[in-house]
């Protein structure tokens, strides 16, 4: 092995150990965000975290990470991995679409897609009304909420990631928040009755 090769290998090992430390630090956080994106499809959540770790390492090796806000940077890559996976038809959560129910029949259909709180507890992942409300959202709205409200990315950045106008981000957020408030109120009412 030549001196140049040894230097390159040394740099590569150093970058790898630096990135491995970041990856380990954000492993749990990324997996939780992925589960929120994917709903009950745990395999897809693991798949997209794996894709994220590899894509992010490629960017890291190519010096495309500026060293600031690794959590937000990884979340952006995670979202893109999720959207890519969806485009590849790797997931069918059954909650797709951007339609909000506006009549009783639609409401009933929509309610039937929300797992009961007991189901979430049995799933062992989501037990809070807030998580249940989040997972009741159509995917397009859930992504907006996760990026804008949970991860606190600016609207302009959310619009850029999702390739939609900023006005659409705002309207999706408004509809999503209203639906979440309604779901949480209904859950609370059910709990009080029981």
């Amino acid at each position: 092995m030549s001196g140049a090769d040894m230097t390159e290998t040394g740099q590569s090992n150093s970058k790898r150990s630096m990135f491995a430390a970041i990856a380990k630090q954000y492993e749990g956080a990324l997996l939780r965000t992925a589960r929120r994106l994917c709903g009950t499809d745990r395999d897809l959540a693991q798949d997209i975290v794996q894709d994220t770790m590899i894509s992010a390492y490629r960017a890291f090796v190519e010096d495309r990470f500026d060293g600031r806000h690794p959590g937000a940077w990884l979340t952006r890559i995670l979202t893109n991995s999720f959207l890519y996976a969806k485009r590849q038809n790797r997931s069918d959560s059954g909650l797709d679409g951007d339609m909000i129910p506006n009549n009783d029949a639609a409401q009933s259909n929509w309610n039937s897609k929300i797992p009961s709180p007991d189901q979430w507890i049995l799933e062992g992942t989501f037990s809070e009304p807030l998580e249940t409300a989040l997972l009741s959202l159509p995917e397009s709205q859930r992504i907006c909420v996760l990026l804008a409200d949970v991860e606190e990315l600016p609207y302009a950045e959310v619009a850029q990631i999702l390739d939609i106008p900023i006005g659409t981000v705002r309207s999706r957020l408004a509809r999503a928040r209203m639906q979440m408030l309604t779901v949480m109120r209904d859950l609370q009412a059910t709990e009080m009755k029981s």
């Binding site: 492993e27 749990g28 990324l30 794996q50 959590g71 949970v150």
Partner: peptide, 27 residues
């Protein structure tokens, strides 16, 4: 009042702010 409280709760969900559970990792 409700939507402000909801947004606050969502911001508190930010993954980085939550502790990592023992089984909350990749295999």
């Amino acid at each position: 009042k409700r939507v402000t409280a909801l947004i606050r709760q969502l911001r508190d969900m930010k993954s980085e702010k939550q502790p990592v559970a023992p089984d909350d990792g990749l295999s």
